[in-house]
Design a protein around this nucleic acid. Structure first.
Lengths: 213, 213
DNA sequence: GTCTATAGTAAGATAGAC
DNA sequence: GTCTATCTTACTATAGAC
C-alpha cells in the first residue's frame, strides 16, 4: 500500500485523483470479474468508469497494472481483517500460538465471501502474465508471517509445511468463494478450520523435533 | 487422449498428420516455456516447427488449443507413470491402501523433474483463459482416483482432504520443478514424501470416523 | 497536473488457392 | 492437408486542450 491516502502538499488537490482511481478500480472489478483479464477490453472499463483511455494509462500505466492495483486493494483489506482478529484475540488474553494463528485464519476465510468475485477471478487464472507468481509469493509471505506465531524454525520440513498451509488457505478461499450461499460459505469455513486444527498435530510434531536436546 | 494413433482408413496417410502435430507440439513446448502463453507469438511457433500459420489452425484450432494439447500430452504421460508404479507395487504384494497411494505419488513426483519446463510454465500462470480451472479439475480427479485406494467416503471433511492432498501435490510439483539440480530434486521428493506420510495420521483419523458404529 | 481525441502497431484469426 | 495474403481487433503512445 503506497502512503498517499489523502496526502496533499503545497495545496494540490489529490482528492480528485483518488476518486478517479477508485472509479477505475470499481469499474475494473466489475468488468474483470465478468470477462477475466484476457477477454476484458480496456474500452469497456473506461466506459463503465465514465472516463477515458488516456486517463487510465495516466493513473495506472496499463491494463495489467490496473489488474494488479485492484488485487492489491483486496489483499490489503484481507490482511487488515486477519491482523485485527489476531490483535483482538491477543487482547482477550489468548496466548497459545496456534490459537492465534487460528483466529487470524478464520477471520481471513470469513472475509473471503464478500470478495468472492475477486477470489474466483484470481484463482481461475484469467490474470496478467506473471501474476500467479506474485500471488503465490504474497500468500506465502502471509503464511510465513503467521507461522512465526508458531515459533517455527527454517528447516526444510518446516518450509514444506509453510507451503502446505499456503496451498491449503488458497484452496479454502476458492472453495468458499464458490459456495452457493452465505450459509454454505460459513459451513465451509467451519469445515476448513476443522481440518486446520487437525493439522496442528502434524505441525507440532515437526516443531518439537526442532527443539534442542 | 483421442484414439487416432496410427489410424488409417481408405488409404489416407494419417502418419504425416501425426508427425506434423508432434512437430508443432515440440515447437510449442520450447516457445511457451521461454515466453509463457501470452507473450509467445504464433508466428514463432510456426517458424520453429517449419510449418505455416494455416496448418497450425487446421490441426489445433488456435493458440489456446495448442497449449491445451501440449499439456494433455504431458498429463497423460504423468498419469501413466503413476498408474504403472501402483500396478508394480500391487504385483509385488503390497496391499496396504496408503502404501499404494504413496507408491503412485512418489513416482508422480519423481517423473516431474524431466518435465520441469512444463510444470513451471503451467504453475507460473502464463496460461490461456480458463486453463487453471481445467488444470485444477484434472489434479483433483487424479487425487480422487487415488484416494479411492484409501476407501474414503464422500463426507465433507473427506472432500476437503482431497482438496488438501491435491494442493499438496501441486505444490510439491512446483517445488521439485524449481530445484537447482536433479540431486536436489530427488531430496525434495523425499522430503515431500515424508510430509505426506506424516499426513497419514490426519487422514486416517478421519476415515475411521466414517466407519459405522 | 489532469484528461481527451486520435493514430500507430502488433498479432491472432480466416478465406480461399493449390 | 498445406500455405499465403488479408482482415480485424485492441493495446499502446502521443499531441495538445483545460
Amino acid at each position: 500500500m503506497t502512503a498517499r491516502s489523502g496526502g496533499r502538499s503545497a495545496g494540490r488537490q489529490w482528492s480528485t485523483t483518488e476518486q478517479t482511481r477508485i472509479q477505475f478500480l470499481d469499474a475494473a472489478r466489475a468488468v474483470f470479474a465478468r470477462r477475466g483479464f484476457a477477454e476484458a477490453s480496456v474500452s469497456e472499463v473506461v466506459e463503465r468508469a465514465g472516463s477515458s483511455v488516456g486517463s487510465l494509462y495516466h493513473h495506472f500505466g496499463g491494463k495489467a497494472e490496473l489488474f494488479t492495483a485492484l488485487w492489491e486493494r483486496y489483499r490489503d483489506e484481507q490482511h487488515a481483517v486477519a491482523a485485527a482478529a489476531v490483535a483482538t484475540a491477543r487482547a482477550d488474553g489468548v496466548t497459545d500460538p496456534f490459537a492465534l494463528f487460528e483466529a487470524g485464519a478464520r477471520a481471513y476465510l470469513q472475509a473471503t465471501w464478500s470478495n468472492r468475485d475477486l477470489v474466483k477471478l484470481v484463482y481461475d487464472g484469467d490474470t496478467p502474465p506473471g501474476f500467479q507468481k506474485l500471488l503465490r509469493q504474497s500468500g506465502k509471505e502471509w503464511v510465513k508471517d503467521n507461522f512465526r506465531l508458531l515459533r517455527a524454525s527454517n528447516s526444510p520440513v518446516n518450509r514444506v509445511l509453510v507451503a502446505l498451509l499456503t496451498s491449503f488457505m488458497g484452496d479454502a478461499r476458492r472453495e468458499i468463494a464458490s459456495a452457493r450461499s452465505a450459509k454454505d460459505a460459513q459451513q465451509l469455513v467451519d469445515t476448513m478450520m476443522d481440518v486446520l486444527v487437525r493439522m496442528r498435530a502434524v505441525i507440532e510434531s515437526e516443531l518439537l523435533a526442532d527443539l534442542p536436546g
